[in-house]
């Protein structure tokens, strides 16, 4: 039995609110083995990004992280700034959602990658430079040698994202978190990037957390899936299994609302009615209850659902499922 790379259990990220702390992420739990894959899916505002940031300790300063968060058995919850530093980039690296905002506009691509390398390894500038060329090549940037002197503004969106990936690879991490890394790209480039991430994962044996609101992409990446709603996980299991047999009303709604390549176009798209609540505003009860067509009267409003087993390795947190099984679902 291998030690899990990352163990997350009942992780909560809360902000101080007017009437006590507000939990923007609540009850996140998963394990990731070396080389493993996890897809976190959910609409924007579901707390995915905040969860990812808390894994690197770069949540906003006002936020408090509680619960269990372990890297190779070592707790990360109460690390100091200085203790966090060696982990960031070297053990866990992140690819941010918007490469235009995430890259410093006034520093050259090479400078940013070299700095990230030298933040962890005291090595001569030449060596760091060679490594930067190497990772840019790995990220699929043509003519990497010449890209070093480019500024982010001189590159296209896809190229920028490849730079962000190169940056993530630069210090040889064991886990890469791709936070909506393909969201701002057009479809053909999205596919290329996902393909690149999959290949890199295999080549470098690096674990991957892939965050997306697009269940199609989730299927492309594979591995485990955690569906989040309003800061809480609502369904977990193998991606293929969950998508083939979604057991939470929200997951089902999500599948029906999105244009996908795998679902047929015979059924018209059905957006989920209502608006996603603000994270932390759901209080007790099932988070999806207000938009749920099959909410259980008198239960969903009061009680937070526990996990039920839908299939081996496939769990769902839903009162309706617990009560009526698949038959009760819309």
């Amino acid at each position: 039995m291998t030690t899990p790379l990352l163990t997350v259990q009942d992780l909560a990220v809360s902000f101080p609110g007017q009437s006590g702390p507000v939990r923007a992420v609540d009850g996140a739990s998963f394990e990731l083995n070396p080389g493993g894959r996890l897809v976190i899916a959910g609409e924007s505002g579901s707390g995915k990004s905040l969860l990812c940031r808390s894994l690197l300790g770069i949540q906003p300063e006002t936020a408090t992280v509680s619960g269990k968060l372990e890297w190779k058995g070592q707790s990360l919850v109460s690390l100091s700034r200085d203790q966090w530093r060696p982990l960031r980039g070297a053990s866990i690296a992140m690819i941010f959602q918007d490469p235009t905002a995430a890259l410093n506009p006034l520093l050259s691509v090479g400078r940013q990658i070299i700095d990230a390398i030298r933040a962890h390894r005291r090595c001569p500038r030449d060596e760091a430079r060679a490594r930067a060329v190497e990772v840019l090549g790995m990220a699929g940037l043509p003519d990497p040698e010449h890209r070093l002197t480019n500024y982010p503004s001189e590159l296209s969106g896809g190229m920028r994202q490849r730079v962000a990936i190169a940056l993530a690879l630069s210090a040889g991490p064991e886990l890469i978190i791709a936070d909506e890394a393909t969201t701002n790209l057009d479809v053909s480039i999205q596919a290329q990037i996902v393909k690149l991430l999959r290949r890199l994962r295999l080549d470098l044996e690096v674990a991957l957390i892939f965050v997306t609101h697009d269940l199609d992409l989730a299927a492309e990446v594979g591995g485990d899936l955690m569906v989040m709603y309003a800061g809480q996980p609502v369904e977990m299991g193998d991606v293929q299994a969950v998508l083939a047999d979604p057991c939470h009303p929200y997951t089902r709604g999500l599948l029906r609302s999105a244009p996908t390549l795998r679902t047929t176009r015979e059924v018209p798209l059905q957006p989920i009615p209502g608006q996603a609540p603000k994270p932390g505003s759901v209080g007790a009860g099932a988070p999806f209850r207000d938009r749920c067509p099959v909410a259980v009267e008198g239960v969903c409003a009061l009680q937070r659902p526990g996990w039920s087993q839908a299939a081996p390795g496939h769990r769902v947190a839903c009162h309706r499922f617990e009560k009526d099984g698949r038959a009760g679902l819309p």
Binding site: R53, L56, I58, R81, W84, R85, P86, L87, R88, G89, A90, A93, M94, F96, D98, A101, A102, L103, N104, P105, L106, L107, D115, A116, A119, H120, L167, S170, A171
Partner: peptide, 26 residues
């Protein structure tokens, strides 16, 4: 508060470097 400062933090750059190079230049 910019995202690229978050990036620099996420890659383990020191506060001094972040402040006086990554932030200051902007």
């Amino acid at each position: 508060r910019e995202e690229y400062i978050r990036t620099a933090q996420a890659f383990g750059l020191s506060d001094r470097r972040i402040t006086f190079v990554y932030a200051l230049k902007n």
